[in-house]
Computed example of a mutant assay.
Amino acid sequence: MTRKDAISQIWYTRCPVPTPVGLATQLGLLDTAFAAEGITLNSIIDSKDRSIRSSHFDHHLDYSFRHGGNVPPVRARSEGNPTRLVGITWTDEFQAIITLPGTGIKTTRDLFGRRFGIARRPPGIVDFMAATALKGLVSALSLEGLAPSDVEIVDIPLSESVLDGREGPQLYGLRNRQAYGPEIAALLRGEVDAIYVKGTPGIAVANLFAAHMVAEFGFHPDPKIRINSGSPRVLTVDERLAQDRPDLVAKLIATLKQAGAWAEEHPDEVRRFVAREVGASEEVVAAANGPDLHKHLGIGLEPTLVEAIGHYKDFLHEWGFLASNFDIDTWVDHRPWAELDIRAVA
Rank of each mutant, 00 (worst) to 15 (best):
Arg75Ile: 04
Pro246Leu: 13
Ala6Asp: 15
Glu282Asn: 12
Leu23Trp: 01
Asp150Trp: 09
Tyr312Arg: 03
Val162Phe: 15
Val274Lys: 04
Gly279Met: 02
Ala131Tyr: 04
Lys257Ala: 07
Ile153Lys: 03
Phe34Ile: 09
Asp46Glu: 15
Gly310Glu: 00
Ile253Pro: 00
Phe315Thr: 13
Ala35Asp: 14
Gly38Thr: 07
Ala259Arg: 03
Ala210Gly: 05
Val205Leu: 06
Lys106Gln: 12
Arg115Tyr: 05
His266Ile: 02
Val151Gln: 05
Thr13Ser: 15
Leu100Trp: 06
Thr25Lys: 15
Asp327Ser: 11
Glu282Met: 12
Gly260Trp: 05
Trp262Cys: 08
Val86Gln: 01
Lys135Leu: 10
Tyr172Gln: 14
Ile184Thr: 04
Ile227Met: 13
Arg50Tyr: 12
Gly230Trp: 00
Glu269Met: 07
Ala133Gln: 06
Ala119Val: 12
Leu252Phe: 05
Asp329Pro: 01
Leu23Asp: 00
Arg114Tyr: 03
Gly102Met: 10
Asp333Trp: 12
His59Leu: 11
Ser47Phe: 05
Pro336Ile: 04
Gly136Tyr: 08
Ile44His: 01
His60Glu: 08
Pro123Cys: 09
Leu305His: 10
Pro267His: 10
Phe57Gln: 10
Trp319Tyr: 15
Val21His: 01
Ala215Thr: 07
Asp58Leu: 09
Ile7Ser: 01
Leu146Ser: 12
Pro182Asp: 09
Asp327Ala: 15
Lys313Ile: 09
Pro267Cys: 10
Ala215Val: 11
